[in-house]
Amino acid sequence: MGHMIKVNVNGKEHSGGVEARTLLVDYLREDLGLTGTHVGCDTSSCGSCTIHIDGKAVKSCTMLAVQADGCNVTTVEGLATNGNLHPMQEGFKEEHGLQCGFCTPGMMMTAIDFLKTNPKPSEDEIRHALEGNFCRCTGYHNIVKSIQYAANKMQTSV
């Protein structure tokens, strides 16, 4: 069907055919069964679908699956290594950064990319960095603390 693509997702090579119009998020969810990446809107606003392409946070609802051909994709399912939580995952758990959990994967993926460019952010910088991610449960209060937790943890572990 359609276009043959080869994508490395969470360290595993996948190849298969996709329709040109298939969005990357639908490819991940429907074709690869990686349902940790969510769809919360249709205007590229909410950020629930955020993943990493070649290490950078991207809204997978605003990218075609064919565009990911040849790329390295990381989704929330790929964050923990050997059963060890990523510091960001740990932060969200420790600081109660999630309630319903729906926005959480996208939130964490954005925050991880953000900490790469700004490893010691201020509270204001964290809040600003989340402008592309909506959460309706937490009031963002504990999400900010979760990211601070992860930042500290990542600092000390370096």
Partner: peptide, 9 residues
């Protein structure tokens, strides 16, 4: 412009 994710692409 937009947000981190939008600026990345």
């Amino acid at each position: 412009i937009g947000d981190i994710q939008v600026r990345n692409v």
